[in-house]
């Protein structure tokens, strides 16, 4: 994927974020995620049934990178089992850390494969992942 395509995908996800909502979603698990070093601040709403992520929505204010990263993450996670979701996130982390990773599993989130070149944007990219990891961990503790 060349850098122009990556930019287009990021901008598209920023301009038309997937499952972004204006208000709190009743009945979903709510998890806030924000960055100490900047002003990104989002709420994730997660619906899990029988260990399957049925739906995720989000609301809040965040920069273009954070918003796009959240949008892409949500698309990638819906329909996955918790195990598959955790596996996806491990592959995604491997990519950010410049380790070997499975690009099929990471999918559209490959647009962030050069984040290591802009160390100050790393926190923007991982913002939604911090939240979803906390939420899944809590779900597993409660339900297993």
């Amino acid at each position: 994927m060349n850098s122009l395509t990556k930019r287009e995908i990021i901008l598209d996800n920023y301009s038309n974020p997937f499952n972004k909502v204006a208000e709190e979603v009743p009945g979903y698990i709510k998890e806030n995620s924000r960055n100490e070093s900047c002003i990104d601040n989002i709420d994730l709403y997660i619906d899990i049934k029988d260990n399957i992520i049925k739906d995720i929505k989000f609301s809040g204010e965040a920069c273009a990178i954070s918003t796009a990263s959240t949008s892409i993450m949500i698309k990638n996670l819906i329909g996955k089992s918790i195990e598959e979701a955790l596996n996806y996130m491990t592959e995604f982390d491997n990519m950010l850390e410049e380790k070997e990773y499975n690009s099929d599993i990471v999918g559209e989130a490959k647009v962030f494969d050069e984040t290591y070149k802009q160390i100050n944007r790393r926190t923007c990219v991982i913002l939604p992942y911090k939240g979803i990891k906390r939420a899944l961990k809590e779900y597993l503790t409660k339900n297993n």
């Binding site: 900047c38 002003i39 920069c63 273009a64 918003t67």
Partner: peptide, 21 residues
């Protein structure tokens, strides 16, 4: 445009501004 994105853009031209509250 989110204020932080404006600040990041200006930084590419060596202009330092603050975004946030």
């Amino acid at each position: 445009i989110f204020p932080q994105d404006v600040a990041v853009y200006l930084d590419k031209y060596n202009i330092c501004v603050r975004a946030g509250n």
